[in-house]
């Protein structure tokens, strides 16, 4: 039993990272109506920026928050310069542009940082605690704590501030929002900026757990984040968080206890999600949209 609990805790930690990236996907999906395939690469790029800042001798948390700021600006710029110019085109065009961004960012990171393996400083101690026979790593607790803090800050921003309200309104009813003076197109850019920040946190948290990383750091994480977002419902922030955590825990348990699936964690997860989607086509928390003719 203690063994299982241990797997659950470390599952929650990796699930927290999936949740952050899934939340970023949901944020952009809700405002732009597009699945952002470049989300993982944006996060990877941010992680390299953080590494660079640390490499130049900045203290950890200074580099951390500076990276978030840079990521925010980067996300806003991507929306303004690229996404905005194709935002009125068909979905395939916008999706293809995010695929172009994925390829471009991956290449740019390989170019700037020479495609070499880097090691990102770990902000958490490597201690473990024994709680009634359950061994818990400080790193896992740290990841859970930071993820939770970010989610709460974001929630407060959306629920308690004027700009957060305008952002939600712009996503739900852009035409009416403009009539109230909300600068909708800037709200979309703001959404991209926030998504980039979420991705940056995910990348910075996940990189030290991998030992070393290169420009392909986030591709597997992105796939799990997609799965988490779909599981929870693409338009539901709560769904993204729950989906991420559930996915993290299930993957960990399946990988640890069912031998056949040990190297088939990914297909197993997909099968599970497909099954759930067949019962609930809009995810666990998504709303089904009633279409008008």
């Amino acid at each position: 039993m203690a063994d299982v609990l241990q797997q659950v805790v470390s599952g929650i930690a990796s699930g927290g990272v999936y949740a952050l990236l899934a939340l970023a996907l949901v944020l952009i999906y809700r405002s732009t109506g597009v699945v952002n395939f470049a989300q993982g690469e944006m996060a990877m790029f941010s992680t390299f920026v953080c590494w660079e800042l640390l490499d130049r001798g900045l203290p950890y948390w200074v580099a951390f928050f500076l990276t978030l700021a840079i990521s925010f600006v980067g996300g806003v710029l991507i929306e303004r310069l690229v996404i905005h110019t194709v935002s009125r085109s068909q979905a395939l065009t916008v999706v293809t542009v995010t695929i172009g961004l994925l390829i471009l960012l991956n290449g740019a990171a390989a170019w700037i940082w020479k495609g070499e393996q880097r090691t990102l400083e770990n902000p958490f101690p490597s201690d473990t605690f024994d709680v009634g026979g359950v061994v818990i790593a400080a790193q896992d607790l740290g990841i859970i704590g930071v993820s939770l803090a970010i989610v709460l800050v974001l929630w407060a921003f959306f629920q308690r501030t004027r700009v957060g309200l305008a952002l939600r309104a712009a996503a739900l009813n852009p035409a009416s929002s403009r009539l109230h003076g909300v600068r909708v197109s800037w709200m979309l850019a703001l959404g991209w900026g926030l998504a980039a920040v979420l991705g940056a946190v995910a990348g910075i948290l996940v990189a030290p757990t991998q030992g070393s990383f290169d420009q392909n750091l986030m591709l597997p994480v992105l796939i799990f984040a997609f799965a988490a977002a779909v599981l929870g419902g693409l338009d539901s922030p709560i769904g993204a968080v729950v989906g991420g955590v559930v996915l993290g825990v299930v993957l960990n348990l399946v990988g640890a206890y069912i031998d056949f699936f040990a190297d088939l964690r990914l297909p197993a997860a997909l099968l599970l999600i497909l099954g759930i989607l067949l019962l609930r086509p809009n995810g666990l928390f998504g709303r089904s949209v009633v279409k008008r003719v």
Partner: peptide, 18 residues
């Protein structure tokens, strides 16, 4: 132009956005 998913209160706050 109702923000159907938002609360009545939030709708009014949006009215006063500017």
């Amino acid at each position: 132009g109702t923000f159907a998913e938002l609360s009545v209160d939030e709708n009014l706050k949006l009215g006063a956005y500017t």
